[in-house]
Simulated scan of single mutants.
Amino acid sequence: MSVPNRAALAEEYAKRVSIDELVRRFGIHRTTVHRLAAQAGVAVRRRGLDEPGRQEATRLYEQGMTLEEVAAELGVGDPTVRSAVVACGGTIRSRGRRPATI
Rank of each mutant, 00 (worst) to 15 (best):
R82I: 02
Q39T: 06
E73M: 05
T31M: 12
S83M: 11
E21N: 01
A37R: 02
G41N: 12
A38T: 11
S94N: 08
L60F: 05
A14I: 01
G53S: 08
E73H: 14
G96T: 09
E62M: 13
G64T: 10
R97W: 13
R46I: 03
E12A: 15
L36V: 06
R25Q: 15
R16T: 06
K15A: 15
V85G: 09
T101D: 14
G90A: 10
V3N: 08
P79N: 13
Y13T: 03
R6D: 07
G77Y: 00
A57S: 09
T66I: 08
E69I: 01
S83T: 09
T80K: 03
P79T: 10
D78V: 11
Y61K: 08
A72E: 11
T31D: 13
G77W: 00
R16I: 00
G64E: 09
R93N: 14
A43H: 09
G90Y: 08
Y61Q: 11
V33D: 05
G48P: 02
A10H: 03
R16E: 08
L9Y: 05
I19Q: 01
R6V: 04
I28T: 02
G89E: 10
G89C: 10
K15I: 01
P99H: 13
E62V: 06
S94G: 07
A8H: 07
N5W: 06
R98P: 03
A8W: 00
V81N: 03
T31K: 11
G90T: 07
D20C: 01
A72P: 00
A40L: 10
A8Y: 00
V3P: 01
L22I: 02
R82E: 13
Q39C: 08
R30A: 10
R93H: 14
M1H: 09
V85K: 08
A57P: 04
